[in-house]
Amino acid sequence: MRRILFIVPIVLFLAVVTYFFVAMRGGYNPSVVPSAMVGKPVPAFDLPGPPSPPNYAGPPVKLGFTNRDMLGRVVVVNFFASWCVPCRVEHPVLMGLGPSANVPVVGIAYKDKGQDAIGFLNEYGNPYVAIALDESGRTGIDFGVYGVPETYVVDKQGIIRLRHVGPLTAESVAREILPVVRALQVQP
């Protein structure tokens, strides 16, 4: 009985150490806020587009869109801004995402001016099939955005299925985004 009393704290200590070790090894990042919007419908919005489309060779880009425009297919929604440095980091990955998964990627310029957003896309390339401006940042708040870039996967019924905080990398696209997109695409 006495011996057990001495062993209990050591066992508890080891259990806590193991828990932290496993949690931190599993890529757990405590600064990422869990999304309250995953599993919920996309918030209603009706956002204007920039004054002119970006210069790029490809099908015409839709300027301005609403949440209803996204229904009926799996869509990747990317919040970006011309003033956002990590957005420049993820941009090449974003350029490849649409073609590689055959999924429309739409861009919402968060707290940005139309001209600046287009200037950014002219310089780095346009990955979006549709572009909208959220100058007030209110739609961003409705999505639960707390910093750009943020990327959402929305299913055919308009339900948010995944949220990625921070710049996309080739690895996070392959590991997180693509499996979800492909699984949702084959669902009715």
């Binding site: 806020v33 869990p34 999304s35 309250a36 919007m37 918030p43 708040i141 409705d142 999505f143 639960g144 707390y146």
Partner: peptide, 8 residues
């Protein structure tokens, strides 16, 4: 606000 950002 909690509806958008969660209990966090």
């Amino acid at each position: 606000i909690v509806k958008r950002y969660g209990d966090f």
